[in-house]
Nucleic acid binder design. Structure first.
Length: 382
DNA sequence: AATACGGGGAC
DNA sequence: GTCCCAGTATT
């Protein structure tokens, strides 16, 4: 069998297999380019099972490009809460607004236009054009790299751009005439269901007999991928600042800046700590450090009351070890008991807001703060 | 080419 | 604990 015959065998077998084994996924029920687009953004670095409920809720809340374009950003972030990589949500809304303004609300169908949209890179460009418009534009993700590296025995580091480009060229040759969308999904579906990262199910694979990786006994060691750097540790101290007097039952949250980590998400006030929480472990040293740092940073005069908990949270590049104290504001300051509280309200930094056991849920928090606040409210019997 | 950017599920 | 997942933007 020559190379061309091998490619034809691969494409035809894979396509046939897909038409039988394709999963019934929410975004596969219609050929709505907006649905495809939303699902592809959500699926970046995120598993299908995680995305399903988010996708359903998101489409219910923002059924059309128009609806998403006109929504407040806060609501979009809230709908994304817990999914991670929140710039995806903000870029998606920004791009949807662009489609509304420049393309009359219709997702464009050329490579140039689609790939120019915010948050849409080479993979998502191919996914939208092939799945929504059945155009033969390659969509090479982790699944596709794994499948191709095994079947065609490609032993290049898949982290390298040059490898992804080689895979894209390969997929372009492999597209079966008139079936671009199904073929794109077939490649990913095989990677998700059969050609899995560990213990691939080769015996049920439709192209096993000509898989070069398996014939060489290398199916478990492919694809080749350089190890990622471990996240750097970062110790932090957080304050659950509860109100007293007429602010009883409330606590203080703040919104993160426009850019960087967890941009525009809400959180409890927290600061970098010289010592990890396990060294502080609820002692006065941590409370003192927190009080001093938050005074310097936000002008808040804290009165730490007691230790709440330790919280660990790992991002891809940072590991937070966070010690959390329950605090109040020193008397005479906003939220504290005392006559001056009304007029002193202005001295709260602009990005700080009081919430209570119900209203806090309207704000979008990263997971680690959802855990901390939930624990606090349980403990306080709210 | 390297790094920033979340979170969770499978082993 | 480790891996890595339907990646993109920025430097």
């Amino acid at each position: 069998m020559n190379a061309v015959e091998n490619q034809q065998f691969f494409s035809r077998s894979l396509l046939e297999w897909y038409l039988v084994h394709r999963r019934d996924l929410p975004w596969r029920r219609h050929r709505n380019p907006y649905y495809i687009w939303v699902s592809e953004i959500m699926l970046q670095q995120t598993r299908v099972e995680t995305v399903k409920p988010y996708f359903q809720r998101f489409i219910e809340k923002f059924p059309t490009i128009e609806a998403l374009a006109d929504a407040p950003e806060d609501e979009v972030l809230k709908a994304w809460e817990g999914l991670g990589y929140y710039s995806r949500a903000r870029n998606l809304q920004s791009a949807v607004r662009e489609v509304k303004e420049s393309y009359g609300g219709v997702v464009p169908d050329t490579k140039e236009e689609v790939s120019a949209l915010k948050g849409v890179g080479p993979y998502t460009t191919g996914a939208i054009l092939s799945i929504a418009y059945n155009k033969p534009v390659p969509a090479v993700d982790g699944n596709v790299m794994r499948v191709l590296s095994r079947y065609f025995l490609i032993e290049e580091d898949i982290m390298k751009v040059s490898t992804r480009v080689r895979m894209e060229n390969l997929v372009s040759e492999l597209f079966p005439e008139g079936h671009a969308g199904d073929f794109t999904q077939a490649l990913m579906e095989l990677g998700a269901l059969v050609c899995t990262p560990k213990s691939p199910h080769c015996l049920t694979c439709p192209v096993m007999e000509h898989c070069a990786g398996r014939l060489e006994g290398k199916e478990e060691s492919l694809p080749i991928k350089k190890k990622a750097k471990p996240p750097r540790p970062e110790a932090r101290l957080a304050a659950l600042i509860r109100g007293s007097g007429e602010r009883a039952g409330q606590f203080l949250i703040r919104q993160r800046p426009e850019t960087g980590l967890l941009a525009r998400m809400w959180e409890l006030p927290h600061v970098l700590s010289p010592e990890p929480a396990y060294a502080v472990s609820g002692g006065g040293a941590g409370a003192d450090a927190l009080e001093a740092a938050l005074a310097a940073e936000a002008g808040l005069r804290l009165q730490p009351l007691h230790w709440l908990m330790e919280a660990e949270h790992t991002f891809s590049h940072i590991h937070w070890n966070m010690g959390v104290y329950v605090c109040e504001l020193a008397p005479g300051l906003p939220g504290a008991a005392g006559a001056a509280s009304r007029s002193a309200e202005r001295s709260l930094p602009a990005d700080y807001v009081w919430v209570d056991a119900h209203t806090w849920r309207e704000y979008a928090f990263p997971n680690v703060f959802l855990r901390i606040i939930s624990r606090y409210l349980e403990d306080s019997g709210a």
